[in-house]
C-alpha cells in the first residue's frame, strides 16, 4: 500500500514538473517561430545580393546552418549513446535517437540544398568533393543507425545496438574525412573556389549568416525537445497500458 502511495506522489510531481516544462517548451516554440520569421526577412529582403552568384547564393544562409546542426545532432547522438551505454537509462536513448532522426533530416536537407546551390554556380548538380562526399557517407551511417533501430527484435536491443553504432559511427567520421580529403587531392577533376567562405562575405551577409545560425539552432532545440517528449509520452502510454493489463489480471486472481 505504502509503495502505491509513493508511486502516486512521484507521478503527480513529475506531471507537475512536466507541465511546467511544457510551458517552457511553448516559449521555445514561439521563439523559434519569431526568429525564423525574422530570419526569412533577413535572408530574402535584407541581405545584399551576391555580385557573382546572384540570388541563388541566398540558399547558403539555409545550407550552412543545416550542415552545422547536422554535425551538432550527430555529436549529441555520440554523447547520448555513451551515456546510455554507461547508465542504461532510457532517457539517454531518447536523446540519442531523437538527435539521430533530426540529424538525418538536416543532412538530407544539406544534400538537397547543396546541389540546388551548386547547379547554377558550378554547372553540375553534384561533385565528389571532400565535404560533399563526407556528408554523404555520414548520411549513410546515420540512416543505417535508424534502420538498425527499426529492424531490432525488441526495443532495448535496438537501443543498445544503435548506441554502439552511435559511438562507432562518430569515431569513424574524422577518418572518413581524412580519407576523402586525400582522395580528392589525388583526383583533382574540377577546381571549385574553395577559398574561405567567410572571407568572401561582406559584413551584412555575415550578420545574416550568424543570425540564421542562431535561428536554426533555436528551431533545432525546439524540435529535439519535442521529439524527446513525444518518445517519453509513448513510453508512458506503454507503461499505463501494461499496468492496466496487470490490474485486470490481479482482479481476476483475487
Amino acid at each position: 500500500m505504502g509503495s502505491v502511495q509513493t508511486d502516486q506522489v512521484t507521478m503527480t510531481s513529475s506531471t507537475a514538473s512536466r507541465s511546467y516544462l511544457g510551458s517552457a517548451k511553448s516559449v521555445l516554440l514561439l521563439a523559434a517561430g519569431a526568429f525564423m520569421l525574422a530570419n526569412m526577412y533577413l535572408i530574402f529582403m535584407w541581405a545584399p545580393t551576391e555580385a557573382v552568384m546572384g540570388h541563388v547564393q541566398r540558399i547558403m544562409y539555409i545550407h550552412v546552418p543545416m550542415a552545422w546542426l547536422a554535425f551538432l545532432a550527430f555529436f549529441i547522438v555520440f554523447v547520448g549513446s555513451i551515456m546510455y551505454l554507461w547508465k542504461r537509462e532510457s532517457r539517454w536513448d531518447m536523446l540519442a535517437s531523437s538527435a539521430a532522426e533530426l540529424g538525418v533530416v538536416f543532412t538530407s536537407l544539406v544534400l538537397i540544398t547543396g546541389p540546388i546551390w551548386g547547379k547554377p554556380i558550378w554547372g553540375i548538380w553534384w561533385t565528389w568533393d571532400a565535404r560533399l562526399t563526407t556528408t554523404l557517407v555520414l548520411w549513410l551511417i546515420y540512416v543505417s543507425y535508424l534502420m538498425l533501430r527499426a529492424y531490432s527484435s525488441n526495443r532495448s536491443q535496438g537501443a543498445l545496438y544503435s548506441a554502439v553504432l552511435g559511438v562507432i559511427g562518430f569515431v569513424d567520421v574524422p577518418i572518413v574525412y581524412f580519407a576523402v580529403n586525400w582522395w580528392r587531392t589525388q583526383h583533382q577533376r574540377l577546381v571549385i573556389g574553395t577559398g574561405s567562405l567567410e572571407g568572401s562575405l561582406n559584413a551584412d551577409m555575415r550578420t545574416t549568416l550568424y543570425f540564421s545560425l542562431l535561428a536554426f539552432t533555436i528551431l533545432f532545440s525546439f524540435l529535439l525537445w519535442q521529439k524527446i517528449s513525444m518518445k517519453r509520452t509513448e513510453e508512458d502510454l506503454r507503461s499505463i497500458r501494461y499496468s492496466k493489463e496487470l490490474t485486470r489480471g490481479a482482479r481476476i486472481e483475487r
Binding site: 529492424y151 531490432s152 527484435s153
Partner: peptide, 20 residues
C-alpha cells in the same frame, strides 16, 4: 545476426563505416 532481415543489415552497417 540478431536483427530481423540480417542479410540486409550487415552490408548497410558495414559499407559506410569501412569507406576510409
Amino acid at each position: 545476426v540478431n536483427t530481423r532481415s540480417r542479410e540486409i543489415m550487415l552490408p548497410v552497417l558495414f559499407f559506410p563505416v569501412i569507406t576510409p
